[in-house]
C-alpha cells in the first residue's frame, strides 16, 4: 500500500516540476532569447547604416538619461520620468473625461432607440478620424497647448467607450429586463442593479481599447505642440537635435508604459468582474 501511494506522489511532483520548467521556458526564456536575437540583428544592421545607432550605441549615448530619470533643470529639460509623468497626467485627465462622457452618453443612446438611430452614423464617422487630424482644430479653437492636448486625448478615447457602452446597454438580455418589468423596479434600482452590471463587461472592453488609443494620441499630440513637458515633445526635441539614440530610448519607454496601462486595465477588469471576462 505504502509503496503504491509513494509512486504516484513522486510522479506528480515530477510533472509539477516539468510544468513549471515548461512555463519558465515558454514565458521567459523564449521571449528573452528572441529579444537577444533581434537586438543582434539590429546591431549587425546598424553597422551598415551610420544614421541608425545600434543597441549598444543607444545605451552608451543615453546612459545619463537612463541613470537619472528624475533630474529637473527647469523648462522642458527634465528627466524621462517627469516627461512620462506629464504625459500620463494628461492622459489621466483626458481619459477620465472621456470615460465619464462616454459612459453617460453611451447609456443614454443605448436606452433610447431614436437617439441611437440619430447619433450612431455621426459617431461612426467621427470615430474613424485619426487623433492627429484633431490637433489643428483643437489648437485653433483652444489656442493653448495644454487644453488642446487634453481635447485630443478626450476625442480619441471617447468613441470606443461610448459605442461599447451603448452596445452593452442595448444588449441587456431580455430576461433581465423582463425581471425588472415584472418587479416594476424603480429607475434608479434598474440602473444600478440591472443595467449597469449587465453592461459592465462591454464598458470595460471599451475602456481597455480607449486607454491604448489615449496613449497613442498623446504622443502624437505632443509632437506637434512645441514647448511643453511630455514624452511626445521629448521625442520631437531629440529629433530636432539629431539625437537618434534618445528617440529610440523614448520609444522603448513609450512601449513599456503603453503595455503597463493595458495590463492595469486587464487587472482592474478581472478585479471588478470576476468570472465574467472571457479572454
Amino acid at each position: 500500500m505504502a509503496v503504491a501511494q509513494k509512486r504516484p506522489a513522486t510522479t506528480s511532483k515530477f510533472t509539477i516540476d516539468d510544468k513549471l520548467k515548461a512555463r519558465i521556458i515558454d514565458d521567459y526564456i523564449t521571449p528573452f532569447v528572441t529579444l537577444l536575437i533581434l537586438l543582434s540583428i539590429w546591431q549587425v544592421f546598424s553597422l551598415f547604416n551610420q544614421n541608425l545607432p545600434g543597441p549598444i550605441r543607444v545605451v552608451q549615448d543615453t546612459w545619463k538619461l537612463i541613470l537619472y530619470p528624475f533630474y529637473d533643470k527647469g523648462g522642458t529639460d527634465k528627466g524621462l520620468f517627469w516627461q512620462i509623468f506629464a504625459s500620463l497626467q494628461r492622459v489621466l485627465i483626458g481619459y477620465s473625461l472621456a470615460a465619464v462622457v462616454g459612459i453617460s452618453v453611451g447609456v443614454l443612446i443605448g436606452l433610447n432607440r431614436r437617439v441611437y438611430k440619430g447619433l450612431d452614423p455621426i459617431f461612426q464617422i467621427l470615430r474613424t478620424v485619426p487623433p492627429l487630424a484633431w490637433v489643428p482644430i483643437a489648437l485653433a479653437a483652444l489656442q493653448q497647448n495644454q487644453p488642446a492636448a487634453l481635447f485630443v486625448i478626450f476625442i480619441t478615447a471617447v468613441w470606443p467607450i461610448l459605442i461599447n457602452t451603448a452596445v452593452g446597454v442595448k444588449q441587456i438580455p431580455q430576461d433581465y429586463t423582463n425581471v425588472a418589468q415584472v418587479l416594476q423596479l424603480p429607475r434608479s434600482e434598474f440602473f444600478f442593479k440591472i443595467l449597469f452590471p449587465s453592461a459592465l463587461p462591454y464598458i470595460f472592453t471599451g475602456l481597455r481599447i480607449a486607454i491604448g488609443l489615449a496613449w497613442l494620441a498623446i504622443i502624437a499630440a505632443e509632437i506637434v505642440m512645441s514647448g511643453i513637458v511630455g514624452i511626445g515633445f521629448f521625442i520631437w526635441n531629440a529629433y530636432q537635435n539629431g539625437q537618434v539614440s534618445e528617440i529610440i530610448l523614448a520609444l522603448v519607454y513609450i512601449g513599456l508604459v503603453g503595455w503597463g496601462l493595458d495590463k492595469l486595465m486587464d487587472w482592474l477588469q478581472h478585479k471588478i468582474l470576476p468570472g465574467q471576462v472571457k479572454d
Binding site: D175, Y176, N178, V182, Q184, Q276
Partner: peptide, 20 residues
C-alpha cells in the same frame, strides 16, 4: 396593459441576475 409583481413569472431560462 403592463407587467407587474401581482403576476409574477417563473421564466423558462431562470432569469436570475448573475452578479447577485
Amino acid at each position: 396593459l403592463r407587467p407587474g409583481p401581482d403576476r409574477m413569472v417563473v421564466f423558462q431560462n431562470y432569469s436570475l441576475l448573475p452578479w447577485m
